[in-house]
Amino acid sequence: MQNDRISILFQGMRDTLPLILAAIPFGILFGAAAISQGLSAWTTMAMSLFVYAGASQFIAVTLLASSTALPVILMTVFIVNLRHMLYSAALMPHVSKLKQWIRVPLAFWLTDETFAVVSHRDIVKPGAPGWTSYYLGSALAMYGNWVLCTWIGMTIGQQIPDMTNWGLDIALIVAFVAIVVPALQQRADWACAVTAAVTAVLCYDWPNQTGLLFSALLAIAVGLMLDPKTATKQAPHHE
């Protein structure tokens, strides 16, 4: 049983590898950028250790450098993180069986990447055992990598080339493609995906990733309108 849990944990780590690769340049860039913008080493590490949210950390550093008022920065951070509320809502059926104390670290470690990998497992192996171990494997690998890369960026970031233009983010793109496509099974799924893809491009220049949030919500609404199960609820005479 213990061995099963550990092997599932490693499976979670392994399935997250392409996403870890894609995160490395950004972790290093964050460490280097924070230091060069005048943040202390302590503040920089504290952000990666305790905030642990890539987009929010970059926004905070950029806004701090432009001396934006702190309450405005905090408000922005909150808006950027609303997307993750959708993730944790989507995982509620799994989490409802877990003890309250474990829900705290699981929520803290919830990222785009871990959500993607965990959702994919749910699509291809619905009801597979060891959900928590798998989640923790993915989350710990992402977290360890992010903290380590921040530290590397902080200490030797100025001496190494900027890796963000190497295009390693392609690993995230193709991994997400591999994760989403098997989920496209019904007409409503496809309509949802097409809506998300088109809308996200149309509102790419909205501030603070609100374009992403808006396209996601619109796409969910489209999926729901065409959803076969919701439709039968509304028209019981079909049954």
Partner: peptide
């Protein structure tokens, strides 16, 4: 629809 919507928008 959450994973489909958000991950597609990101991609």
């Amino acid at each position: 629809y959450v994973p489909i919507a958000v991950l597609t928008a990101i991609v």
